[in-house]
């Protein structure tokens, strides 16, 4: 029993193809990975929205602070 389909390398390599674990679950793995990718964008945009809202609060810093930021170049 082996997750990759081979439990020994006593084989003719000309007849060996895929050797990754859990062959047959490729479509499921793809669906999971695509969902994770899309979720990443959602989480990132939510986090960025919150950060930009925080930074856009005019009362947070004084005009002097802003000038200092600009002078940092």
């Amino acid at each position: 029993m082996s997750t990759i389909g081979y439990s020994s390398w006593a084989v003719d390599l000309a007849e060996v193809g895929a050797i990754y674990p859990f062959q047959g679950s490729e479509v499921v793995m793809t669906i999971v990975a695509v969902v994770l990718w899309l979720a990443w964008h959602v989480v990132e945009i939510r986090g960025e929205n919150a950060q930009l809202e925080r930074l856009s609060d005019k009362s947070r810093v004084t005009d002097d602070d802003r000038r200092r930021s600009i002078e940092r170049y």
């Binding site: 193809g17 895929a18 990754y20 479509v27 793809t30």
Partner: peptide, 13 residues
């Protein structure tokens, strides 16, 4: 395609 056997560890490709 992402589910193709050749898009992975595969000694024939």
């Amino acid at each position: 395609a992402p589910w193709s056997e050749t898009m992975a560890t595969n000694l024939s490709d």
